[in-house]
Design a binder for these strands. Structure first.
Length: 695
DNA sequence: TGGGGATTT
């Protein structure tokens, strides 16, 4: 096979006027296939658009420290580029080629595909690592897929990631917190390891930002004309996708009720358009259920328009079985209508979709560093999201996308790209990860998109109050270093450390595992009463944390039965995850010198340990107020979440794990405390609060 | 006094 090797004639490029390198995309010769087995797979590989760019990609990677690949979906970049690199010798001498993904599922499926294409067993030459699953063989695995979170963890053992020769960061345009941290760290590593090559794969819209971020050629002078090391200026290469065209329809006038508009658009499609499934993007479960109800009513009153419609909800909270309904083939004469949250935008790919309806909204997290509260609000999506959504209609054949906003709005008002998650989040976990990697100057860290100084200062302040950071904002010893080892929110980690002294680490590690997943309960709309009754079987007067202990105990006694979970409105997948996380925490705790010890029913010890982690989230019931609480820290008005076992109970003093902010601010996972424990757990915080708050 | 967009270590 022909690919570029140093010293041979190089392929032709043009220099972009702004400094990047852009490839002439026409007249590229595709190389002939080898006659080595796997003829079918080899043919499939060659049909991928990225295959034509093989020579060019290898040339750019050879000559540039950073190569930005702009690849549409279906270009084949994720599966092919690591193979090109391997074939070109980047894995020789025991070196490893890494490819990161934001999601676990993508890591698993992509690595399985690549192992198949290479004709090797997954876990040998091609392997993958995600939390709880390491399918690699040291010294053998040379192409490794992993989540970006795992790669950040690996830096704690090997800060320069010395075993990797090339690191490809896939889906960088999604701008998740982990990806952004990783990009910042990789830029730092590049300075110390000029031989390391980075490949950043991004959508068009973010490519320029990535170029600017990695363009260090202005700051550092590479000797002109020297053959030493790669060019510091990134290269940009565009690879076309393999999607079909999607015709975009806009509404002529702004829509006042997008749910009604969704329903009428579905009926219109069903009446006028040839067969093909419909994918609708809505904001959340509420919207989805309302739309399904309206469709059902429509079917009742108007059989002609809605005949053959098969509405299916899709969001992450659904059980495995409910989600699988989406993937069953559409029965003949039927038309699936999948009503989805933005889970279908990136995380799930649905085959058979020909029509997309885009409400123009999604729920997004925002963070207020003043109140230290994250809230989830319905907000307009970005152009980048709108394009991603419409692209979902062109996977099997040319499709149509109905945007429920005007073209004028799209062109003139819709923001180009979303706000990176980093700028919409509480940063305590981010800060602790960087501190653990020895990065002292958090405020001066070179981020792809820096968060606000207020948010960073708030995170430093919280970590200081937890005695994880000292006066110089360095990790304390041993607390800070121990917290950094635990893959948890620092408040949960602090709770675990406290449990060692309080003699209840066995119980607290269970609670920590439950608090670190979304929820153990299934979402049971329409059967709330039954679920509330089921919850009462586990409910503890002290609150949710103690209730979780009862749930876990019941799960073990049932021999981890899925039937038992179903009967008790518990999410079986979540419970299995709790067991897994608990095992991991147990191992790490042992390494930190924490021995598993049960308090044998001494619930006060457990609540004190919780308080030691979550003292900053203390609240007092307002007298005669019917359930209004005030936070001690900021006097914010908050309520107990209806999912809590303490809902309507309203004890006088509580600490909460987190706040969900909808119409009201609701505390999730609440436990009763004795206020004297607050000063015991955090005298520095409660006796000298004025000083602390102005850190 | 009634409710969790999506990820991940």
């Amino acid at each position: 096979m022909a690919f570029w090797k140093p010293g041979t004639e190089k392929p032709s490029f043009v220099e972009d006027e702004e400094g990047g390198i852009v490839l002439m995309s026409n007249n590229l010769s595709s190389s002939s296939s080898s006659s080595y087995g796997y003829a079918n797979i080899e043919k499939q590989r060659q049909r991928l658009p990225v295959y034509k760019y093989r020579t060019e990609i290898l040339y750019l990677v050879e000559n540039h420290a950073t190569t930005i690949i702009v690849g549409e979906t279906g270009s084949g970049k994720t599966t092919q580029i690591p193979q090109f690199l391997k074939e070109a010798g980047w894995a020789e001498g025991g070196r490893v080629i890494a490819c990161t993904q934001p999601r676990r599922l993508a890591v698993q499926s992509v690595s399985a595909r690549v192992a198949e294409e290479m004709g090797v067993n997954l876990g040998d030459e091609v392997g993958y690592t995600i939390r709880f699953e390491d399918h690699t063989t040291s010294g053998v695995t040379s192409v490794k897929f992993l989540t970006d979170g795992v790669l950040i963890r690996e830096m704690m053992e090997d800060p320069l990631l010395t075993k990797y020769s090339v690191i490809m960061v896939d889906e960088a345009h999604e701008r998740s917190i982990s990806t952004d941290i990783l990009l910042g760290l990789l830029k730092k590593i590049q300075r110390r390891r000029p031989e390391l090559r980075l490949i950043i794969s991004s959508a068009t819209i973010e490519a320029k930002a990535m170029f600017n971020f990695f363009n260090t050629s202005k700051n550092r002078q590479a000797p002109e004309g020297s053959t030493q090391g790669p060019k510091l200026e990134p290269a940009i290469l565009s690879v076309e996708g393999r999607g079909f065209s999607v015709k975009i329809h806009y509404v002529e006038e702004p829509v006042s009720d997008y749910i009604r508009s969704v329903v009428s658009t579905i009926l219109l499609i069903n009446e006028r358009e040839p067969p093909g499934d419909v994918l609708v993007f809505l904001t959340g479960q509420d919207d989805i259920e309302t739309s399904i109800k309206l469709l059902a009513e429509e079917a009742h009153s108007n059989q002609k328009n809605s005949s053959g419609l098969l509405p299916l909800p899709l969001y992450s909270g659904l059980s495995r079985a409910e989600q699988e309904l989406i993937f069953t083939p559409t029965p003949r004469g039927k038309r699936k209508v999948i009503l989805s949250t933005n889970i279908a935008e990136t995380s799930l790919t649905l085959e058979g979709v020909v029509y997309v309806i885009d409400s123009g909204f999604s729920k997004q997290k925002f963070y207020n560093p003043i109140s230290d509260i994250e809230s989830l609000v319905v907000a307009p999506i970005s152009k980048a999201s709108a394009r991603q959504r419409s692209g979902r209609a062109g996977r099997v054949r040319p499709g149509k996308c109905y945007r429920l906003y005007t073209e004028d709005y799209f062109l003139k008002q819709m923001p180009g790209e979303g706000i990176p998650e980093m700028q919409r989040s509480n940063l305590v976990s981010t800060v602790i990860q960087l501190k653990a990697l020895g990065i002292d100057n958090i405020l001066g860290f070179d981020w792809p998109s820096p968060p606000s100084p207020q948010a960073m200062i708030r995170a430093l302040e919280v970590l200081y109050s937890l005695q994880i950071l000292d006066d110089d904002a360095k990790l304390t010893s041993p607390t800070g270093f121990q917290v950094a080892e635990l893959p948890l929110d620092p408040m949960i980690s602090k709770m675990i450390l406290a449990s060692n002294e309080l003699g209840c680490s066995d119980e607290i590690i269970t609670i920590a595992a439950v608090l670190s997943i979304q929820s153990v309960w299934v979402i049971a709309r329409g059967v709330q009463k039954e679920q509330d009754e089921a919850k009462l079987r586990f409910a503890a007067a002290e609150g949710d944390h103690i209730t979780f202990l009862n749930v876990y105990k019941g799960f073990l006694e049932s021999k981890k039965s899925s039937q038992w979970c179903y009967k008790n409105f518990l999410n079986y997948q979540s419970m299995k995850k709790v067991v897994e996380i608990r095992d991991q925490l147990k191992r790490i705790a042992r390494r930190l010198g924490i021995t598993l010890k049960s308090c044998e029913g001494d619930i006060d010890a457990v609540r004190k340990a919780v308080t030691a982690g979550f003292f900053a989230n203390a609240c007092r019931l307002e007298p005669h107020s019917n359930g209004v609480f005030k936070t001690i820290r900021g006097s914010e008005e908050v309520y107990i979440h209806p999912s809590s076992v303490l809902f309507r109970v309203n004890p006088k003093w509580v600490v909460y794990q987190s706040i969900v902010s909808t119409e009201r601010q609701y505390m999730r996972n609440v436990v009763t405390i004795n206020p004297s424990w607050l000063t015991e757990a955090a005298p520095h915080f409660y006796q000298n609060r004025q000083n602390n708050m102005s850190l």
